[in-house]
Design a protein around this nucleic acid. Structure first.
Length: 259
DNA sequence: TTTATGCTTAATTCCCACCG
DNA sequence: CGGTGGGAATTAAGCATAAA
């Protein structure tokens, strides 16, 4: 039962900003002492909740009241999931807690949650370059996309304040789509020097559709990348080399005599 | 034995009425 | 008007109990 309570306690803190152990005990239908221990557990896990004794006191979530789940900071959600157990462990308690959590989302926030799910597209048809580990900044940028916050990007020696629109995983290589003062840009994440999530709200066109936009970007990149086409005759043994280099741009037309 | 929970008491903080 | 003391609300800590 504990995981359920911790999630509820955090949601309650987020909604109200401050709760007393007694209030929480009422919500959770446990004793005040147990509610208080749950709050201590959240605090010990790194979630910034602090107690204040005395009349008018209670447990306060530093950073003030937030009303939506997407307002969870990366650190908070990480701490929560560390507390609840290993992610994806399939532990019944955890999954039921998360189910309740999702069900508890008001309709307006559910739309946001769906938007969060659409923050990333995965495009397995890559250009043949093999790269596995997502760059460390992917998490940071995804957080910015989900929370709709402007990001200060350092990319190739220039600094930009960008409105992040979405992330694309193209066969292990990550790209960030963002609007900047200079127009819409695509940033290769592993070439981003640094990314700082600001508190400024980011703008995103209402009709923005990441998969559609990503398809457009890909088409544009491919157009620029392939200004020239060539027909070559090579030994069949080297086909894999060409394939790995040119990906789907490499079309085998015919084979004759092993070439 | 360990862990979670509940109960009781002490300490802290704030509100408010009272009084000079 | 300002200081003071009591009471209420709250957390903090220790101990007991039950279940795994």
């Amino acid at each position: 039962m504990r995981a359920d309570r911790l999630v509820t306690a955090l949601l309650l803190l987020q909604a109200r900003g401050r709760v007393t152990a007694s209030e929480l005990a009422g919500e959770l239908e446990v004793s005040v002492a147990t509610a208080r221990r749950d709050l201590e557990a959240l605090s010990a896990a790194g979630i910034p909740v602090y107690p204040q004794a005395g009349r008018g006191g209670g447990w306060q979530l530093v950073g003030g009241a937030r009303t939506d789940l997407t307002g969870l900071t990366a650190a908070e959600s990480q701490a929560l999931f560390v507390l609840l157990g290993p992610a994806g462990s399939g532990e019944p308690v955890l999954s039921s807690a998360l189910r309740k959590l999702v069900r508890a989302l008001p309709a307006t926030f559910r739309a946001d949650a769906e938007a969060a799910a659409r923050a990333v597209v995965s495009d397995p048809a890559g250009w043949g370059e093999a790269e596995r580990e997502p760059p460390g900044l992917v998490g940071t940028l995804r957080d910015a996309v989900v929370r709709r916050r402007k990001v200060r990007l350092v990319y190739g020696g220039t600094e930009r304040l960008a409105d992040p629109l979405g992330l694309a995983d193209k066969d292990g290589i990550w790209y960030l789509l963002a609007d900047t003062e200079a127009g819409r840009r695509t940033f290769r994440v592993d070439r981003v020097v640094s990314a700082e999530v600001t508190d400024l709200p980011a703008e995103r066109p209402d009709d923005f559709d990441l998969p559609v936009e990503w398809a457009r970007v890909v088409a544009e990149m491919e157009r620029r990348r392939s200004p020239v086409s060539a027909v070559v005759l090579i030994d069949a043994r080297f086909l894999p080399v060409l394939r790995s280099h040119f990906g789907r741009h490499c079309e085998v037309v015919a084979e004759e005599g092993g070439r």
